[in-house]
């Protein structure tokens, strides 16, 4: 039953991602008026329904396992997709910029696909990790990742719009992507949000290890180092923008670098390095 629900969720995410990408592929103004509204509506509602299914699925999983599901890649990637979708929906709610979905939904879909392909695995969560600290720590970190991915989406939107403006003739043909000012500004806000969440997540994590679990702090833990590098990349981005006017194009590239750092921290460390944070 749960697996069937998961399959349905996967397919809805696939459909939503395809439609989100389709709406971006439309480039002529006439198509934009005739078919895009329909495609956009399907994509957006698909995203909403997919999110509802995913939430239900994670809840059921939680109930059957008896603790917050964050043991295996299956749990982790599903939660990752959930966080991405949540942040996306919040941004759409605030800004009405559905186009962001064209960039972030495929990421969410790939996460669910990975989750689905591991779905038969289950692993017991060690007793000391079964508490609200884990919930708070991972939720904050994943929401931070999701905010960074949204910033990445805005960065790509910025670069696409800029390319169109420089190519001149089709600069005005498309009305889906927002102006440079908007993409840049929202990307920056997402970056700030991500940094705040990540900082909080790291603090919660370190308090948890040091004071609650009484585990000696391991500076050399690969995940910790990688997270700090990621954190630094984003903080540097904010600093450069504030003090040297690094916005627009440079900021857009920085969100891409940040995105790569997030992926390295999230996936890379687990695959290639040893850490106390690995999913099994």
């Amino acid at each position: 039953m749960i697996n069937f629900l998961f399959l349905v969720t996967l397919l809805i995410y696939l459909a939503a991602s395809i439609f989100q990408t389709l709406s971006l592929a439309i480039s002529s103004r006439s198509e934009a008026v005739v078919i895009r509204p329909t495609i956009e509506r399907i994509a957006f509602w698909g995203t909403g329904i997919g999110f509802a299914f995913l939430s239900l699925f994670i809840t059921l999983w939680w109930l059957t396992q008896g603790h917050f599901p964050m043991t295996h890649w299956t749990d982790s990637t599903a939660f990752f997709a959930w966080a991405i979708t949540l942040i996306y929906l919040i941004i759409v709610r605030l800004t009405h910029l559905r186009a962001l979905g064209s960039f972030v939904m495929p990421v969410a879909f790939i996460a669910i696909l990975i989750s689905y392909s591991f779905a038969t695995h289950t692993a017991a969560l060690p007793e000391p990790l079964q508490n609200y600290w884990l919930l708070a720590h991972t939720t904050l970190i994943f929401l931070a990742y999701a905010a960074f991915i949204a910033a990445f989406g805005f960065g790509l939107m910025y670069l696409m719009t800029e390319r169109k403006i420089r190519r001149k003739t089709d600069a005005l043909l498309d009305n889906l992507l927002p102006s440079l000012g908007i993409s840049d500004g929202l990307g920056y806000r997402c970056t700030i949000l991500g940094v705040i969440l990540l900082t909080m997540g790291v603090i919660v994590g370190s308090l948890w290890t040091q004071y609650i679990r009484d585990v000696p702090w391991r500076w050399l833990d690969a995940k910790v180092i990688s997270t700090l590098v990621t954190w630094f990349i984003y903080v540097a981005q904010i600093g450069l923008r504030q003090f040297w006017g690094w916005h627009g194009r440079r900021a857009a590239y920085a969100t891409i670098i940040g995105f790569v750092a997030v992926l390295c921290t999230y996936v890379g460390v687990d695959l290639f390095l040893d850490s106390m944070h690995t999913y099994r």
């Binding site: 103004r29 934009a32 403006i165 600069a171 102006s179 440079l180």
Partner: peptide
């Protein structure tokens, strides 16, 4: 509402205004 015959600047000065909006937003 169903076609775009009334959109898109068809004079130089309006094209400039639309382009400016595409850059600055407002």
């Amino acid at each position: 509402s169903e076609t775009t015959i009334a959109t898109g600047a068809v004079s130089i000065s309006y094209a400039a205004v639309e382009l400016a909006k595409k850059i600055f937003n407002t």
